[in-house]
C-alpha cells in the first residue's frame, strides 16, 4: 500500500480521537483520547520518513499526558457547563466552515504533487550537507548549522517561558507562605 493510504487512515483515526475527546464525560478518558492525536501524528511523521520529528513528537506527547493527568485528575471541580451551546451559533459556525471549505477547494488543485516540493533548497542540503558540516544526520546539520538562528530562537523562547513560569508560580507560593506566618 502507498504511504498516502496509511496517512489517510491515521488522520481519520486522529479526527475520531479528537471527537471522542470532545464528547467524553469522564476527564481521564478525554485526556487519553487526546493522546491518540499526538501519537497518531508521531506515526505519521515516521511514515513520512522523519524519525527526528517522530521521536520528539512521541516524547512530548508522553510529557504532555503526564502533566495533564497530574493537573486534571486531582481536581473535583471540572463540571461541564451545559448552557454554552446555542443552536443558532452552532449552525452559523458549521455553515461558515463549510463555506470556507468550498471556497478553499481551488487552492488544493494548485498545490504541488505529494513529495515534490517547489523549493530547491532541500536538494542543496542533501548534496552539500555532509561535506560542509561533517554530520551524518542531515537534520542536525540543518538545524544546528544552516538554520542555527532558528534553534537559537527556540532556545530563547524556552528560556523565557521557563523564566516567566518560575517567577510567577514561585511568587504565589511565597506570598502564601508569608500569609500563613503572619
Amino acid at each position: 500500500m502507498p504511504v498516502e493510504t496509511w496517512l489517510y487512515f491515521i488522520f481519520g483515526f486522529m479526527i475520531l480521537g479528537s471527537i471522542v475527546a470532545l464528547e467524553m464525560k469522564d476527564i481521564l478518558s478525554a485526556i487519553i483520547a487526546i493522546g491518540v492525536v499526538g501519537l497518531g501524528a508521531s506515526i505519521a511523521f515516521l511514515l513520512l520518513q522523519a524519525p527526528d520529528l517522530a521521536i520528539v513528537q512521541f516524547l512530548f506527547e508522553i510529557f504532555a499526558l503526564i502533566i495533564l493527568v497530574r493537573a486534571f485528575t486531582r481536581k473535583e471541580n471540572h463540571v461541564q457547563d451545559p448552557s454554552g451551546m446555542n443552536k443558532f451559533i452552532v449552525g452559523l459556525t458549521v455553515l461558515s466552515l463549510l463555506a470556507i471549505l468550498y471556497f478553499s477547494l481551488p487552492v488544493f488543485e494548485n498545490l504541488p504533487a505529494f513529495g515534490a516540493p517547489k523549493m530547491t533548497v532541500a536538494d542543496f542540503y542533501l548534496q552539500n550537507g555532509a561535506k560542509d558540516t561533517g554530520a551524518a544526520n542531515l537534520v542536525a546539520s540543518v538545524i544546528l548549522d544552516y538554520r542555527a538562528y532558528d534553534t537559537l530562537g527556540e532556545i530563547t523562547i524556552l528560556f523565557t517561558a521557563i523564566l516567566g513560569s518560575l517567577t510567577i508560580l514561585r511568587m504565589k507560593n511565597r506570598s502564601k507562605k508569608e500569609g500563613e506566618q503572619e
Partner: peptide, 13 residues
C-alpha cells in the same frame, strides 16, 4: 545527535 535521529531536544526530553 549528529549521527542518528534525535539530538538535543529529544534526548533532553
Amino acid at each position: 545527535g549528529h549521527l542518528t535521529p534525535g539530538g538535543g531536544f529529544g534526548g533532553g526530553v
